[in-house]
Write a protein that binds this DNA or RNA. Structure first.
Lengths: 167, 167
DNA sequence: ACGCCTTGTCAGGCTCCCTGATCAAGCGAC
DNA sequence: GTCGCTTGATCAGGGAGCCTGACAAGGCGT
């Protein structure tokens, strides 16, 4: 049945639409991150920037909140460390453990990243109508509250600070 | 800064919300597909079920519309072939080429899959309010039309037939 | 002081996608 | 006709991201 090269949008399944919008959002984010000079921060690294605690955090804890294995997070942290975004310092409370903490550079990147989210949402509000986007957010929040009550609690907050400041 | 284990939803960035909703939708789809007896159809296989033409389609063409390389699609088709969902028949118009076509089993799976999309959308309409979901779809369609004019044209249509029929 | 749990890491594997190279078949120019 | 060039499919290899299993070093309860 898929034959007509121009499938009308109202026949595209909801997951498809969702994915298109989601990906568009992501691509916009990615492009601006590159433009801001953080092109070496890959999508995978997000799980660290989102969840890492200001005062440092153990690998195991990071793995838990990110919903990944210690090994996977460890690999990502290795990568971020080699790029200078995070550092491992010995945990004074436990000689086995190390605390993973953002470096100065890492914190700047985090600020810029969080700032980009609000920037983009504002831009979409201008592009598609503020009420439409507000509506969209409202609906998605309701959905998220129902569908992922255990999944969402860890997700980061964005934009506590007013402006990202230039990198 | 990410410290409070309970981040209020209104502080979650739009992409995060989008992804949660998108994934919830996907998981629901996946679960029902398994339940319908098509558990061996993996997400990757979607690019074939979505795009394959009723009368058969060449690998190269499939790769083009799916936006992937011939090799990647080829691998997926190999897999689907070994599972009995598609078959390769010689192309009468070109002795080099083969036509990839759904088998009977493959067509049933496609029907069921397409049907599930509408089923789930209806269920969400009941769960979150028909107008809310209609609104959501409307907004997403508008976004998709702007953000992915070259990306969307290939996306499949769903639900041409009224009911998926029991597998 | 003795096992037992925890923390982090090494080793290896799987999936899904990619690039590069190859081979057979068709097609156009002469 | 036949000599290249293009095209359809495939083989080989690689990288990103995630996983499970195994294990050494350190801490902790009794």
């Amino acid at each position: 049945m898929p034959s007509d090269p121009k499938t009308p949008l109202n026949l595209v399944p909801l997951p498809g639409l969702m994915e298109v919008a989601s990906e568009a959002l992501f691509i916009e984010f990615r492009a601006e991150l590159v433009e801001a000079g953080y092109g070496d921060v890959r999508p995978t690294h997000g799980c660290v920037f989102r969840f890492v605690h200001e005062n440092g955090m153990r690998l195991t804890e990071l793995a838990q909140v990110a919903g990944m294995t210690k090994q996977s997070i460890g690999e990502i942290v290795d990568d971020l460390e080699s790029r200078g975004y995070v550092e491992r310092i010995p945990d004074p409370a436990d000689k086995r453990a190390k605390l993973i903490r953002l470096t100065e550079k890492g914190e700047q990147a985090q600020r810029v990243g969080f700032g980009l989210f609000t920037t983009i949402e504002q831009r979409w509000a201008e592009r598609y109508g503020a009420d439409r986007i507000a509506e969209l957010r409202e609906t998605l929040e309701e959905i998220a509250a129902v569908e992922a009550p255990q999944l969402v609690p860890e997700l980061s907050q964005a934009a506590r600070e007013p402006e990202p400041a230039t990198p």
